[in-house]
Design a protein around this nucleic acid. Structure first.
Lengths: 374, 374
DNA sequence: CTGAAAGCGCTTACAG
DNA sequence: CTGAAAGCGCTTACAG
């Protein structure tokens, strides 16, 4: 089945077949500037006949840059991270980058090993996901950034310019919505660790502050959603709890379950809202009000940041394109620059507010019962 | 922040610093056979001082093999695929492979482009996920297999030797379980497309055949889980429907919602079981009986298949190790072979039945109400 | 045990 | 517009 060690045709083979020099073929491959139509044609033919593809590895060796984006995460098994990865991949491939995924766990030594190896692969840049969940990885962010353009996708620190933020607005809006419904205040069950740092939590707090609503410290959940169930049971024993904002949809589901198991009703007795927009919330009973995050957009934005990194080759320049694209047959030079602009445009359009992030109102939230919530 | 174009130390730098030839350093890096202790020591020191890491790209150029595993999928946003990717990454990194993720959508031309580029990266092998959901990708599987060791992780065709199967047993067991509960038969709502080919469906069918239970053709759901809700509504209008096996947990949630919305009860009126073991099923109301798939194990197994590919360099050989590991400080040659054996062992232990796949019984299933189901 | 040389597939100045 | 040469960082025979 496998072609084994049979090497693919090289630029030499193309040159020989086309009767030109290797340099000329290379020129053809890189934009076709300064090339007679005759050569262009004969090379195009040879490329096609041989089904030639430039060896990306060799290119990477010369340029000291492998056209890839390295994603580093502690875990990609949650809805959000997974969507982010998907968004990164989609955006990356538009730019002909390959996406690499590396999970780092515990053990300082291993992380350094892993990270060093990654750096040796010379990706165009690195995207770190969910640092908040691993202080270890977080501590390596700086180390990585020393060698590679690095974007941290997280929402832990609103102040830091190096982070991509998406959730503050969502936390704010969802809390406002609950308040508008007539709830005196909104309780918060945060996703694991650093509940006070997540921007969704900051948005929640801000919304409460604005109207002078009482603010209880968030209850912190774990990734074991049965903990959310316990929290739900606990919270609904307080009559003043009429509205709960959960850090994500799974936690919301757990909280709802806890409430229901206590014999109370959602949303009649307690309203519960989730976060992220996990499709599962559409078919639970009750279905879950949530803030849909545009994860794919955020992923794409991270990629664009790397693509437009200040020190990179991205600066508008008139010489050869680096796209590494091979034109089979019809050769259309000078189209190379356009995608860049498109992307930039798109990146800007996304701004800091994600295009299609929005509140999705479902069954789990409603006005407080009369006589309650005050 | 970024070190820009400053090149990392190369093997030349190490050689110069250590006062030996490049070949000698290379020998050191590749296992240290035929090396005097003196040289070994001085090189180790230079490596450490320079914080040298061999350039994986250069290595890949020489060996015509980049130490990576390419995952190709149409979508990784479902629980199962995501777990698979995670399992692949974990296993791959134990072997010092980098994992690459590529999503292929529609458009024949683009897929060929993408796949060709991937092949040019010369990964050690390729893992194709979920072919069943994209006949397009499926049609490329053969093309890819011509150039690379390829493993298809899917469950579409029990007969084909090239597929990794995991779900037949699960479908069988979960159906048996429902039957043992006293249900006369079990209806099946399959995940999208080719419901008849999924092995979980085959297992379901086999279990029914064994006891001569009536077999209704599976109802096919889509990835929009509201469709599952409709199916649930529809199915529970038939009194003979007392047990439903859904193709996955999200579909089960949707089916359950449909049933509840019709005013029936789960599991009192209808039992519903899911599949996969998505943690969300733990906190829905009712919580969902399911078959937990050992996705990570399957992913690891796919990686091991590639690592032990017949034509690869894996065959036991006494010469240099290819592990690409740099020993900083303490140099322990000859330890290189051991991981291989470990892994092999583990791979075999996993066999065709996944280690920790098992039935998880929760609230959504129960014996049929008396007077029903017969 | 050790080093000089050639080569992996490409790109990049440098001459024409 | 075109080609010969050098070089990217490593490994692999080949001589000693």
């Amino acid at each position: 089945m496998v072609a084994g060690k049979r090497r693919a045709p090289s630029i030499k083979d193309v040159a020989r077949k086309a009767g030109v020099s290797v340099s000329t073929v290379s020129r053809y491959l890189n934009g076709g500037r300064n090339l007679s139509d005759g050569k262009r044609k004969v090379i195009a033919e040879a490329v096609k006949d041989l089904n030639y593809r430039p060896n990306t590895i060799a290119r990477a060796l010369v340029s000291n840059e492998f056209q890839s984006i390295a994603v580093i995460a502690t875990d990609i098994s949650l809805y959000g991270s997974m969507q982010l990865v998907q968004g990164i991949e989609l955006a990356a491939r538009r730019r002909h980058y390959l996406v690499t995924v590396t999970l780092v766990g515990n053990g300082h030594e291993m992380v350094k090993e892993t990270v060093d190896q990654l750096i040796q692969n010379r990706p165009v840049g690195c995207i770190i996901l969910d640092v908040e969940r691993s202080s270890l990885l977080h501590s390596f962010a700086g180390y990585i950034a020393q060698s590679l353009p690095t974007v941290i996708v997280d929402e832990a620190d609103l102040a830091s310019g190096s982070l991509l933020i998406g959730a503050y607005e969502g936390g704010y809006q969802i809390t406002k919505y609950l308040l508008r419904l007539g709830h005196k205040t909104v309780f918060h069950v945060s996703i694991p660790e650093n509940g006070n740092k997540y921007t969704r939590s900051l948005g929640w707090r801000r919304a409460l502050e604005e109207v002078g609503a009482p603010i209880e410290e968030p209850l912190s959940c774990t990734w074991d959603f049965r903990k959310a169930e316990q929290i739900g049971r606990y919270l609904c024993s307080f009559p003043e709890v009429t509205a709960i904002f959960a850090g994500n949809d799974e936690v919301a589901a757990g909280v709802i379950r806890g409430i229901l198991l206590e014999g109370k009703k959602v949303p009649e007795d307690v309203s519960v809202a989730g976060f992220d927009g996990n499709p599962i919330g559409e078919v639970t009973v009750p279905s879950i009000t949530t803030w849909r995050q545009n994860f794919q957009g955020i992923g794409a934005k991270a990629v664009e940041r790397l693509a437009h990194w200040p020190d990179s080759d991205d600066r508008p320049e008139a010489n050869g394109s680096k796209s590494g694209k091979v034109d089979d047959g019809t050769h259309k030079a000078s189209e190379e620059e356009e995608p860049d602009l498109d992307q930039l445009q798109q990146s800007r359009a996304m701004g800091d507010e994600q295009v299609s992030s929005r509140l999705i109102i479902r069954e789990s939230t409603a006005p407080p019962q009369s006589g309650r919530g005050r």
